[in-house]
Amino acid sequence: YQHLQAYKNSILPEEIFAVFIDAYHAKMRDENEKLTNISIYLAVAIDMEGYKQILGYWIKKGKENKSFWIEVFQDMISRGLKKVAIFVSDDFSGLTDVVNQFFPYSDHQLCWTHMKRNLRRKFSKREYSLLNKHLTFVKESLTKDEALGHWENFLKELSNLNPSLSKQYEKKSENYLAFIDYQQEIRKHIYTSNVVESVNAGLEMMRLELGGYFPSMRTLEINLFIQLSNLNDKWMRKPVAAFRANLYEMRQILNVKFGLEKFLD
């Protein structure tokens, strides 16, 4: 248990290239033997050397909400995190405000996997196929102008099907297209928060093995700590090749973003 506490309070790097954040929802038996809703907040990073690592996890009773995300960001900052090129998350209400509040020089990319999942739920197979065609063109674009053109086509197609939804996406265009400003090789790694969802899959397996819910906070924390430690050990053996090949470019991106600080402060 001491190792667990040391892990939760460990010092973080000052600079991280990408931080992927997500929340997993489940039920846990509380001290009164009642099942209660919990949210497990996770942050996974790709560091300035191209390695994936887990920055931390935070367990809160209740549903995901903005105040919990504020606590998560405050904790990461208190443990040493200062500069991040890009955050990647799902489109949780208020999360963009939290990113802008604590990391105003960082990009915030909204997850395409979550977006496509939502579109698939709302539209027929044929309608989704038409929308996805434009999204594929966006991802394959070589320049930002080209990507913006295909995104506009996507919004027009969406407007024909659901005008109010199209307006919602239009307002968040900057966040859905943040990844386009990065090197071609690393774009595919930063337009989705799938790296965190792989951790969530492990949590889901753990929950099912324990009978559909977590029997106590201690059981959850110890099992989670073991899973995350094993993942960290595995990830630290081999960097992500696309990032490793672009270390100079990654450094330049961070320098440009946070070099502005000196002039704007």
Rank of each mutant, 00 (worst) to 15 (best):
I226A: 10
I253A: 09
V98G: 01
E261Q: 15
Y248P: 04
K8A: 11
L135T: 09
M206N: 06
D145Q: 07
F123V: 07
E157A: 11
F20V: 08
K144E: 15
L12V: 01
N223A: 02
D22L: 08
I21L: 14
I40L: 11
D107M: 09
R244S: 14
K61E: 13
L12F: 09
K66G: 02
I253P: 01
P163C: 04
Q5F: 02
N246G: 01
R121V: 07
I38H: 05
S78L: 08
T113E: 14
F68G: 03
I16D: 07
N194M: 08
N246A: 01
D181P: 00
G259C: 02
N9A: 15
M236A: 10
R207T: 09
R29C: 06
V99T: 08
K238T: 15
M250I: 15
S129C: 08
R244T: 11
F225C: 07
R207F: 13
T219C: 05
L35R: 07
E261I: 11
F17H: 01
F73M: 15
I226S: 09
H25V: 09
Q74E: 15
A18Y: 11
K234I: 12
K133M: 10
S164W: 06
V199M: 10
E261D: 12
A6S: 14
E33M: 12
L210V: 06
E157L: 05
C111E: 09
N100E: 11
I46F: 12
K63L: 09
L220T: 00
M48C: 07
M28Y: 08
K116P: 02
L95H: 08
N223P: 01
R237L: 13
V44P: 02
I46K: 05
D265R: 10
E146K: 02
K122Q: 13
R187P: 02
L42Y: 00
L247Y: 00
L155K: 13
S129K: 02
G56T: 01
M236V: 04
Y41K: 02
L81V: 08
K8C: 10
A242R: 05
Q53S: 13
L254A: 00
D97M: 06
Y176R: 09
E249A: 13
S166C: 14
N175E: 03
Y57D: 11
N255R: 11
K122Y: 10
I54F: 09
A241P: 09
G259K: 10
N223Y: 04
T192W: 03
F137D: 14
L4Y: 10
R218Q: 11
L254G: 02
Y213G: 04
K257F: 04
V19Q: 06
Y176H: 08
N160P: 07
S67P: 03
Q74G: 03
L228P: 04
Q109Y: 07
W112H: 14
G94Y: 06
K167Y: 10
L131N: 13
A26Y: 05
I40E: 01
G211K: 05
N200T: 00
R121K: 08
V88Q: 01
A201Y: 10
S198C: 14
D181W: 08
K139G: 06
D265G: 08
N65R: 12
M217Y: 14
R244I: 06
N132A: 12
A241I: 13
S159E: 15
F179R: 00
N9D: 15
C111H: 03
A43E: 00
D75H: 12
N153W: 07
F243T: 03
